[in-house]
Structure formats: C-alpha cells, structure tokens
C-alpha cells in the first residue's frame, strides 16, 4: 500500500468473490469434519453405550475400558506392525520399480500403467482375491506342495506371534498372519509409491549425476550418495500418505481375513465398526475413533508443520 493513499475500505468484488468462494468449503469442512470430530470427542466422554442416547459425563472411562481389552491391545500391536511392514514394503518395491522404469526403457508408459493399475481396484476385491490365493488349502500352497515343500505356510490363518513376549493381556510381537495381509496391501499400493518415486527421480538434475560420474562415482555410489538423498522429500510424502491409508485400513481386512483367530489381524477400524454398530456401544466406539485420530494426527501434524515452515523459508 502506498503511503498517503486514502485508507478507505472499498467494497471490492474481488474480495467478496474470494470470501464467497471459500465459504462453502469452510462451512462443509467446519461442520462435517471439525464439527463431527468435536461431537465424537463429546460422545466418547459420555456413557452412551446402548440405543438410548445418554449425555451423562463419565470422563475418560470409555478410554480406560477400551485400553484394557484384549481386543484393543491386539489392535494397537497389529496397526503398528502392519503400518511398518506395509510402508517399508511399498517403499522398497516402489523404488525398485521406479528405478527400473527410469532406465529409458521401451514402452515405459505401458509398464507404468501396469504397475499402478492395482491401485484402481477396491481393497475389498483385492481382499477377496488374496484370500483365495493365500488360503492354505487352495491357491499358492498347492504350487508349493507340488514342489515338494513339507511345512506349508498357514498364511493368514496362523496364530503364531514372533518374538512373543507378554505385555498387558496380549502377546507382543509380529503376528505372522498379518504378513499375508501386508503382501496384499503392498501389491495394491506399491504402484503408487512407484509413481511418486518416478517423478522424484525425474526431478534429479542430470548435471549433478554427470558431475558425480566425472568425479569417478560408480553406479552404487551414485545411487547411495546422489539419488537416495535427493529422494528424501519424496520418501517423506509417500510415508505420510501411506500411513494415513494404513491406519484407516478396513475394507481389506473385512473382506480378506476378518478379525482373525485371537484377533491376530484385527484393526482399530474393525473394532470401532463392530463396537458401534453391532454392539450399539456408541461412546466406546467414539473413544476408539478418537484414539485412531490421535494416532493419525501424531504422524500428519509434524509433517504439515515442517512443510509449512519450508514454505515460509522459500
């Protein structure tokens, strides 16, 4: 603003249209996202645990009840194990595919579509198909058997947990059954990681690589000293998006394994759905939802803060 110019607030169609354009979004977000989050928090603090609505305040009782159950403790173990394996799997497979595609091969577009295609399929279809493939009595075990393998894997029916030490009510470790679910999930989502990595790879300037090559760096050195560090931002983006997808996972589990014997493949979202809509325990269901939200927020908020900061610096 120029000094000395009249500081008069003039009605401007530009300002009005900007505000008016934002209002629907703000309204919809405000009511349907933040309003409902607030409502869920409120419900989770009441004892509304039947079809009769109740607003008796019980503090954190629902949270304490939920956290003490075998099922929810299993859920927390499962979601951590699943998320770690799922993301590492997607990153490794996705980066590998992206590196292959980045070799200036023929029909790159075809292969790119081929690898990214599973992402277009719904988790429910993926779940049904992989349940057939990994059912110990059908599918892939028949092939393994014909190769003379003796101890066939039980896949998602296994109740084995490794390393298995008792904590709270449950055995803590990696439930082998979850690895079968991880396979299906990685199959579906690694194409997404590939696509993002590919754009990241294309963003690395050839000049840096050229300079490194002139300095005598071999292929491995080039990969670990130039390519990987340059992909750090890309990797963070993939991790954040896949974490969000992973913590909310429902359809795949619902269709493929269900909760599993001894809850080896149960997830907080499954528990929330059944507690709320089959048990009619709305307050406890809301408590699960809020814990899930806090888990998600603990990943997303640091990421948002760091991107905002980077935006300020630029």
């Amino acid at each position: 603003m120029q000094a000395g110019a009249p500081r008069k607030h003039r009605f401007s169609w530009d300002t009005f249209s900007a505000v008016a354009t934002l209002i629907p979004t703000l309204l919809v977000l405000g009511v349907f996202v933040y309003g409902f989050i607030g409502w869920s928090v409120y419900v989770s603090l009441t004892n509304w645990n039947s079809l009769i609505p109740s607003n008796t305040f019980v503090g954190l009782q629902n949270y304490l009840d939920i956290l003490q159950t075998y099922r929810f403790q299993s859920d927390l173990r499962n979601i951590v194990v699943f998320t770690v394996f799922f993301i590492v799997g997607c990153l490794v497979v996705g980066l590998f595919l992206a590196l292959l595609l980045d070799q200036k091969i023929r029909a790159e577009g075809f292969f790119r579509s081929l690898f990214i295609f599973p992402m277009a399929i719904s988790f429910v279809s993926t779940g049904v198909v992989w349940a057939w493939i990994l059912n110990p009595n059908t599918g892939v075990n028949l092939i393994l058997k014909s190769f003379g393998m003796k101890h066939l894997p039980e896949w998602f029916l296994s109740t084995v947990i490794i390393p298995n030490f008792g904590l709270g009510q449950i055995d803590v470790g990696i439930p082998l059954a979850l690895l079968a679910v991880v396979i299906a999930a990685v199959w579906q989502m690694s194409g997404f990681a590939m696509a993002v990595y590919l754009s990241g790879l294309r963003g690395i300037s050839d000049e840096i690589k050229e300079a490194a090559r002139i300095d005598g760096a071999g292929a491995w050195r080039l990969f670990f000293a130039i390519t990987l560090p340059q992909l750090r931002g890309t990797t963070t983006t993939i991790i954040i998006i896949l974490t969000a997808a992973s913590l909310k996972i429902f359809g795949l589990i619902y269709a493929m394994t269900g909760s599993g014997q001894e809850f080896v493949t149960d997830m907080p979202s499954m528990n929330m759905f059944q507690t709320t809509f089959q048990g009619n325990e709305f307050a406890q269901g809301a408590a699960i939802a809020i814990i899930l939200l806090l888990l998600l927020a603990s990943f997303i908020i640091p990421y948002l803060v760091s991107t905002l900061r980077r935006g300020d610096e630029a």
């Binding site: 645990n49 039947s50 099922r71 809850f263 507690t275 089959q278 048990g279």
Partner: peptide, 13 residues
C-alpha cells in the same frame, strides 16, 4: 447387542 459383541470377542479368542 453389547453382550453379543462381547461374547463374540470372547469367542474369537
């Protein structure tokens, strides 16, 4: 329904 859900959780184990 609350009993049923708890029963089915116990059965799963």
């Amino acid at each position: 329904p609350g009993f049923t859900n708890a029963f089915s959780n116990a059965m799963e184990i």
